[in-house]
Design a protein around this nucleic acid. Structure first.
Lengths: 199, 199
DNA sequence: GATATAATTAGATGTATATCTAACTATTAA
DNA sequence: TTAATAGTTAGATATACATCTAATTATATC
């Protein structure tokens, strides 16, 4: 999973000792383990520990000469990780693909399986994605710009399901509708919950 | 301390749940707490917990409407943190200032206090920075390019201090000298331990 | 004032991890 | 082969923190 790599990148950099090690290496010089331990006032095993983490994240490279292991910074990987992280958070690259079609097959199957032939909702789907599909399907039947009283809205929902209270709450919860002083109104569709970017 | 801010930035991003929250917010939409909790399959307190961390790192902003708190991503700060982190690691900006003068006052005082009038080292400084100053002072008296036998080097060090074994080891440890088959040679001064970037 | 809803705080629990000392391994050199 | 040196591994300890449930606070509405 992509996410874990990003997490590991930031874990590697979220410790003051490791940052200080990188700082010591940032001039490009090589420094060996014992020298690091002494400079940082740490034991050798602790240096080994941090070196392993930095190596796993490809932030340093190592060279052996006799008994001594010299560390050197790997700046390209540090920069690359930073960029990958930003791209991930801002969803560069994957955004376009997932923007469209929230799984049309799923939508079809939910409409087929959860709604009876007479249009009523058999049961409220428990699974998150499916529930949203059912909610959206019903919300689309409401008139944009119209202000509904609670009573009117209950009546509307009752066309589909007896448990209007739950569904009314879900409409609010997932931002299909907005409530003010017991008056209900459809939100603009841009605000309707999106599930494409959940992953 | 500057270091802590960088650590906190990466801590904020080193948890999969928080990354998923940012991912949900990355389209610029607002999402409120309960919706986040449901989407991520977490309890509301857990969302509060993560929201607090993200807010501390200025990665999200919050807006209250009635009882509900809506979160929105703060992309500028996420990018700014990334840049600040790289600048810190690669020591942009501070590098020039600290490049010079490893604390000339300290150097003077060490040379004055630890070396006698006849030039001998009274005692090996225990404090790291001071020890390096004393070592460097002595190392500078060695001839670059010259290969010393262990005996010769011991004699040289003895000019300064009886404990030539310790000082010889320190010369190696801190990369003032290099040893191969009992032959000792001065390292190029670029390799001499630098302390400017320890902080 | 009473009730409902959203969020926060408190406290418990389990896991992750930074650090140390002691023991061990690997490499070099006498 | 033995001794010395650098590094690693094992195990202990303490702290950080992600998560939950239960109780509390804050806001809005009747």
């Amino acid at each position: 999973m992509q996410l874990d790599k990003i997490v590991n990148y930031h874990k590697a950099l979220s410790d003051p000792t490791r940052l200080r090690i990188l700082l010591l290496l940032c001039k490009g010089e090589e420094i060996h383990g014992q020298a690091l331990a002494e400079r940082l006032n740490l034991s050798q095993p602790t240096v080994t520990h941090h070196a392993a983490k930095l190596r796993e994240a490809a932030m340093i490279t190592e060279r052996r000469d006799k008994n001594t292991i010299y560390f050197r910074m790997n700046p390209e990987f540090i920069r690359a990780g930073s960029e990958a992280s930003l791209n991930f958070i801002f969803s560069k690259g994957t955004q376009e693909m997932e923007q469209e079609s929230p799984d049309d097959n799923l939508k079809e199957s939910v409409l087929r399986n959860f709604f009876a032939k007479d249009g009523r909702l058999r049961q409220i789907p428990a699974q998150y994605k499916k529930k949203l599909i059912a909610l959206q399907f019903m919300a689309e039947k409401l008139a944009p710009g119209t202000v509904y009283s609670e009573k009117e809205l209950n009546e509307f929902i009752r066309q589909y399901h007896e448990d209007y209270a739950t569904i009314r709450r879900e409409f609010i919860m997932h931002q299909f509708m907005y409530r003010e002083h017991d008056k209900y109104e459809l939100n603009p569709t841009e605000m309707w919950t999106r599930w494409e970017n959940v992953r």
